[in-house]
Design a protein around this nucleic acid. Sequence first.
RNA 1: GGAGCAUUAGUGUAGCGGUUAACACGUCGCCCUGUCACGGCGAAGACCACGGGUUCGAUUCCCGUAUGCUCCGCCA
Length: 593
Amino acid sequence: MRTNYCGLVNKKYLGSKVNVVGWVHRRRDHGGVIFIDIRDREGILQVVVDPDSAEAFDVAEQVRNEFVIQVTGLVRDRPDGTVNDSLISGQVEVLVEKIIILNSADPPPFLMDDEKITESVRLEYRHLDLRRPEMQKNIRIRHKVGMLVRNFLNNEGFLDIETPMLTKSTPEGARDYLVPSRIHEGQFFALPQSPQLFKQLLMIAGYDRYYQIVKCFRDEDLRADRQPEFTQIDIETSFLHSDEIMKMMEEMVRYVFDKSADIKLPDPFPRISFHDAMDKYGSDKPDMRIELVLTELTQAVKDVEFKVFRDAVNRKDGRVAALRVPNGSQLTRREIDDYTEFVKTLGAKGLAYIKINDIDNIAEGLNSPILKFISDDIIRKILHLTEARSGDIIFFGADKRKIVNDSLGALRLKVGTEKKLLSKQWMPIWIVDFPMFEFNEDEKKWNSLHHPFTSPAEGDEAFLKDDPGKALSKAYDMVINGWEIGGGSIRINDIKIQKKVFEALDISETLAQEKFGFLIKALNSGAPPHGGIAFGLDRIVALICQVDSIRDVIAFPKTQRAQDLLVDAPNLVEEKQLRELNLKLRKKNKVDE
RNA sequence: GGAGCAUUAGUGUAGCGGUUAACACGUCGCCCUGUCACGGCGAAGACCACGGGUUCGAUUCCCGUAUGCUCCGCCA
């Protein structure tokens, strides 16, 4: 049917006869001569239909946008002055001898080079959206990233091993997608949130280096970077220290970014502790491109009169911190009000600030509603600690530590982006030294920060029993430009420590046996030191493609309400299907007729 | 569960307490032999998301619902 891809026809084929097939991108009918831009996945080719070939001309007049056509003709130079440099094939054109309509098409709801289509229309007509060159590019980069990952890991001796999709529901973690078992009445499989335990079992089984590019499922609410089904690059190794794993994974990521999009990432990636990341950036996934940092002020303002500060200082989980914005004194009242509203949505009660017009004149060079509550001494201290200069503004957060970090951390991103206080560099960073646990205020118990199989840091096993909040773990997260793209850890391979961690998490011996009995058994049968990491493939590809949402790198994504607008899923099922599964709906729904 | 923004021909937008609801692209027809976002002339195409309220009168103002997106909660 075809001798060449449309987009790849060039001067090399001058004088030869080609057969091309593709979609009609655009038709320009000049009455006497008709140009058709024919498009396939490689690009666009202009074909010319001359009235001399009456039969072809007749067909060309019937052709419409998005028809599928086959064209036979001669590749020739374009006449002087009609070269189109924006096409790879733009030096040449094909003089049509024969044109066949392989299939007609309804007029599409949008043109394939329209860039202003709203997302719901794109999702409803995803098969057309995916025809658009931009989506074709993204999906191909995704393919390339996958292949590069496989190349790299294959070269390092990793084995691709599949793990089950129908598996077991586990406590903790995200909400599971459940699959009812027909054979076992009242029982359910769960779709994997990740192959975590299987890959540990593979290490115990001696496969030494495992990887898998695999779908994972979490029934939680969606975000721009979160879909209910997403793809992990799942990796596990035996007999490697965390430094060795991190070094190898960095290399992989550098290789993938370089070879897929010629993006050069630094070597090595810098590292920062979880504690410092929260302290300086108010986030465990800081966007290091943004130049702004938080300044710790809790101690510095401990004797201040200002009630908002004093209350924060006096509570045991309180924090007072500042965000200095260079040249921010030019911010309008309106902008500051907007920022105040913004931090309120994140739990802050307000947003105190000081505008610094003249730093050498404390008495009159500052502008702020809170000055009268703060002594000159403390103001000098604040100005010194934040390294303020004339023309700056300083925003303050004073509340529970979490609220201060969330609100100033988010404000840092917002102001940094809006005021363009960011570098154009790619800024990967490792977050290390995570705490083992964080305290869940609602349930009054400790939860794993990573997962319950993460090894405590050397020597920190001692804290597990009496002071779990103090224990650090051997976990590491990779963050690029504020996107958490991967996380992993050295795992526990000592059953005694695993049991202590279960205890700290308030997972009873019975529950541990019931849910993780197979792991406990395996840990008792010669478990090697092991650890690994899992990357979010969708996020990596989105970064490389420089799109804002992973939906733009997933062929068939779901909407924020977790629906597929193209196939209209999920949907109601037949009563018969429910009966086979021994299921009964609690509220009666109308079943589709 | 909560907050915000949006919803007007096929698509993307404008508009406004009383309009013939405007523009661009697309579509259809006629004309056109070198265009490439071809051009010219003409035409068709909208219950202004849905339900309620305010009003003499609502596409416009208010409330609710639905849907899409962003964020919080949630995501070991």
